Amino acid sequence: MTLHDFIAAITLGGITDNLAFNTKIDMLHISYSLIMFGVIAILVTWLSLKSRRTRKWLSGHPTVVIEDGNILEENMRKRSLSVYTSG
């Protein structure tokens, strides 16, 4: 799951929550927002599947931090990670 997918799932959950439990907002407005965000999320996912540049911009690229059983400390520093724990 990419960061985009995670954010889309959380946002759609929030909109659906408002649809189910918020009685002060018109159901039609919440339904429109749910449909529009769903369409946008599907469009962005489709674009990231069709275009490498879009996929790289949305998902970034992975960083290897363990290779052949060895911790790559330089790569961990680039991602602001630490081997050490407090305690």
Rank of each mutant, 00 (worst) to 15 (best):
A41T: 07
F6W: 11
L47R: 00
S31F: 10
K50R: 14
S82Y: 08
H29A: 10
I42H: 11
G87M: 09
I42W: 15
K56P: 00
L28K: 15
F21P: 10
H4F: 15
A20W: 07
G60L: 05
S33W: 03
H4Y: 14
G14K: 01
R79T: 07
N70K: 14
L43F: 15
N18T: 06
T23F: 09
A9V: 08
S33A: 14
F21T: 15
K56S: 11
K78G: 04
T45S: 13
F6Q: 11
V83C: 13
L12E: 02
Y32D: 05
T45Q: 12
R79F: 05
L19S: 05
A9Y: 10
I7M: 14
T2F: 12
F6C: 07
V65N: 02
N22Q: 13
I71V: 14
E74F: 06
N75R: 04
I7Y: 12
L72I: 13
E73C: 06
M36E: 14
S51L: 12
R77Y: 13
A8S: 10
S86A: 09
Y32W: 06
W46F: 15
M1I: 07
T63I: 05
S82P: 02
G38E: 06
M27K: 07
S31G: 11
T2K: 13
S51K: 06
T63W: 02
A9S: 10
W57V: 08
S80M: 12
T54P: 01
L72A: 04
I10C: 07
T45P: 01
L34T: 03
L58Y: 02
A41D: 06
W46N: 12
I71M: 13
V64E: 09
G60I: 06
W57L: 15
F6K: 12
A8V: 06
K78M: 05
I25S: 12
A41E: 08
I66T: 01
M27Q: 06
N18E: 13
A20P: 01
I7R: 04
E73G: 03
Y32L: 06
E67P: 01
G60R: 00
G69W: 07
L49C: 01
S86P: 01
I30P: 02
E74N: 10
N70A: 12
D68F: 04
L19A: 10
Y32V: 02
R53W: 10
N18P: 00
F21G: 12
A41P: 03
V44R: 03
H4I: 11
G38D: 07
T11H: 02
I30A: 10
D68Y: 05
S31H: 03
T85G: 14
T16K: 01
I66A: 02
D17E: 08
L47K: 01
S59P: 00
T63D: 09
D26E: 09
K56A: 10
G13S: 11
